[in-house]
């Protein structure tokens, strides 16, 4: 299968929208305002925090709220800081805040105190009041799988996806990367345009 035809190619996975399970956009935005635009999106790796943060940035921008969206780099040192610094009207949205050493985090808090807000994603609660908790489950996996495949997955693909999901501890991003590899190697039967396992190409 050509990478451009792989249903799990990266541009398709990153285009999946965040799925609220018990929360709603109205509820999230109300809580954000209650928290004076200071809060954390908390959840394990591959649970949709970055997606939610990016969608939040787009929502705030569409409402005329200036946002400064950044990602803490892997291996960020104690000297890491926002460059350029945020304007007073900016809401700072920082992905992967857990990557910051404590000193860099404290400096960010000081810099962001002069801005209109600070929302971060992080793996564990405690950095800021929790704005939302992100998580994954098999139902979410199936929902996203159906979107990527353009319909309900066939049994072999679903079984492979569930196995990868378990192996990856619920990390959806890693799960879809595994499924990309399986599809690329022709080891994920039942994909659109491919015969299901045990079915000849002519349908016999």
């Amino acid at each position: 299968m050509r990478p451009a035809d792989n249903p799990f190619r990266s541009e398709r996975v990153v285009s999946l929208s965040y799925r609220f399970r018990s929360e709603t956009w109205d509820g999230l935005l109300r809580r954000l305002r209650e928290l004076r635009f200071r809060g954390a999106l908390v959840g394990p790796r591959g649970s949709g925090k970055t997606t939610l943060l990016e969608e939040l940035a787009a929502r705030l921008s569409s409402e005329g709220v200036p946002v400064l969206l950044r990602s803490a780099p892997e291996g960020a040192g104690v000297g890491w800081t926002l460059d350029p610094p945020p304007a007073r009207a900016d809401v700072v949205l920082l992905d992967s805040a857990e990557r910051l050493p404590r000193l860099a985090w404290l400096r960010l808090r000081i810099v962001a105190a002069r801005a209109a807000g600070l929302v971060v994603t992080t793996h564990r609660p405690g950095l800021l009041p929790t704005l939302a908790t992100c998580g994954t489950d098999l139902a979410l996996l199936e929902e996203l799988l159906a979107e990527l495949l353009g319909g309900p997955p066939q049994a072999p693909a679903l079984a492979a996806a569930r196995a990868a999901f378990e192996l990856r501890g619920g990390d959806l991003r890693a799960t879809f990367r595994d499924l990309y590899d399986l599809a690329a190697a022709g080891r994920l039967p039942g994909l659109p345009g491919e015969p299901a396992q045990g079915t000849a190409p002519d349908g016999r």
Binding site: P3, R9, S10, E11
Partner: peptide, 8 residues
Amino acid sequence: HTSGKGTR
């Protein structure tokens, strides 16, 4: 453009 597993 590229398309596949990595960054586009």
